[in-house]
C-alpha cells in the first residue's frame, strides 16, 4: 500500500514539474542579461539577476496594458449586467419559447468568430468605431452575452422558486424582486462571471488583432508583435509574456476558487 502511495505521488510530482517547466523557463530567462540568453544555455540559472528585460518589456507593453485595462473593465461590467438581466428572466420568468430563445443565445458562444468578423469590421468601420477601444468593448460585450447569460441563468436556477413566489404573493413587481431579492444574492455570481470575463477578454486575441492597431492594441497583440520584431530577444519576450499574464495569474492565485466555479458554470450544464 505504501509503495502504491509513493508511486502515485511520484507521478503527480513529475507531472506537476512538467506543468511548471514553462514558468521556470520564463522566470529564469526573463532575469538573464541578453548575453546569457542563448539556445545552449536555456536551462541554466542566470549568473546574476538582471531586471533590465523587465523594464524594457514594460516600456514596450505598458501602454497596451493600459488599453487592456480600459477594455476589460467596462466590457466585463456591461456584459455581466446584461447577463444577469437575461439570466433572471430566463430562469425565473420562463415563458413559452424561453428555452428556445436561451438555446439561440447560447449558440452564439460556440460560433467561430471568424464567421462574423468581416461584417463586424465593416459595421464598426461604418460607425467609426473600427480601430478604437470603444469598438472592441462593444464587440466583447455582444459576444460575451451568451456566456454571461448562461452563467447567471445556472446561478439563479439555484435560488429557490419559493422565495420568488412568496415575494409575488406580497405584491412585489418584476423589477422589485430583481433588485431586492435577486441582486443581493448575486454577489458571488457577479464575482464568478466577472473573473471569467476578465480572464477571457484579457486573453482574447482574434478580435483584438483584427479590430485594433498600434495605439489601441491590447497587451496580447503587443506581446505577439514583440516576438515579430528584429532580433528575438528571448529574455525580453519572456519578461513580456510574464507581465502580460500577471493580471490573470494574480486573479487565479487569489480567486482561483471562483475561477473554477466559472469554468464549471460555463460548461453548459455544469
Amino acid at each position: 500500500m505504501a509503495i502504491r502511495r509513493i508511486i502515485k505521488y511520484a507521478v503527480l510530482i513529475i507531472l506537476a514539474l512538467f506543468f511548471l517547466t514553462p514558468i521556470y523557463v520564463m522566470l529564469i530567462t526573463s532575469v538573464k542579461p541578453l548575453s546569457e540568453v542563448s539556445l545552449s544555455e536555456m536551462w541554466s540559472l542566470p549568473s546574476a539577476i538582471d531586471f533590465s528585460s523587465y523594464s524594457e518589456a514594460f516600456t514596450q507593453l505598458a501602454p497596451n496594458m493600459m488599453n487592456s485595462l480600459y477594455l476589460v473593465i467596462p466590457a466585463t461590467l456591461l456584459s455581466a449586467i446584461l447577463g444577469a438581466m437575461n439570466g433572471y428572466v430566463l430562469s425565473k420568468w420562463r415563458f413559452k419559447g424561453s428555452e428556445v430563445i436561451f438555446t439561440m443565445i447560447l449558440f452564439g458562444m460556440f460560433i467561430p468568430y471568424q464567421s462574423i468578423l468581416i461584417p463586424l469590421i465593416q459595421f464598426l468601420n461604418s460607425i467609426n468605431l473600427y480601430n478604437s477601444l470603444g469598438g472592441l468593448i462593444f464587440t466583447h460585450v455582444v459576444y460575451g452575452l451568451p456566456i454571461t447569460t448562461l452563467m447567471f441563468r445556472n446561478f439563479y436556477a439555484n435560488i429557490p422558486e419559493s422565495m420568488i413566489e412568496a415575494a409575488k404573493v406580497d405584491g412585489a413587481s418584476f423589477v422589485k424582486i430583481f433588485r431586492l431579492i435577486i441582486l443581493p444574492l448575486s454577489i458571488t455570481g457577479f464575482v464568478v462571471v466577472a473573473i471569467w470575463q476578465f480572464t477571457n477578454i484579457w486573453n482574447e486575441f482574434l478580435f483584438a488583432v483584427t479590430i485594433t492597431n498600434n495605439n489601441t492594441q491590447p497587451v496580447m497583440v503587443a506581446l505577439q508583435n514583440l516576438s515579430g520584431s528584429q532580433i528575438v530577444q528571448w529574455n525580453v519576450q519572456m519578461a513580456g509574456a510574464l507581465l502580460a499574464a500577471l493580471p490573470t495569474l494574480l486573479v487565479y492565485i487569489f480567486l482561483g476558487k471562483y475561477f473554477v466555479r466559472g469554468l464549471l458554470a460555463g460548461s453548459v450544464k455544469g
Binding site: 539556445l39 482574447e204 519572456m238 486573479v251
Partner: peptide, 26 residues
C-alpha cells in the same frame, strides 16, 4: 498547479512553447 495554465492566454502559451519545443534548444 495543473489548473493555472487555464488562466493564461493562448498567445502566452504559444510564445513559451515555441521556445520549449524549438528544434535547437528546449
Amino acid at each position: 498547479i495543473f489548473l493555472f495554465p487555464m488562466a493564461l492566454s493562448f498567445v502566452v502559451t504559444g510564445v513559451v512553447w515555441q521556445w520549449l519545443l524549438h528544434p535547437s534548444t528546449g
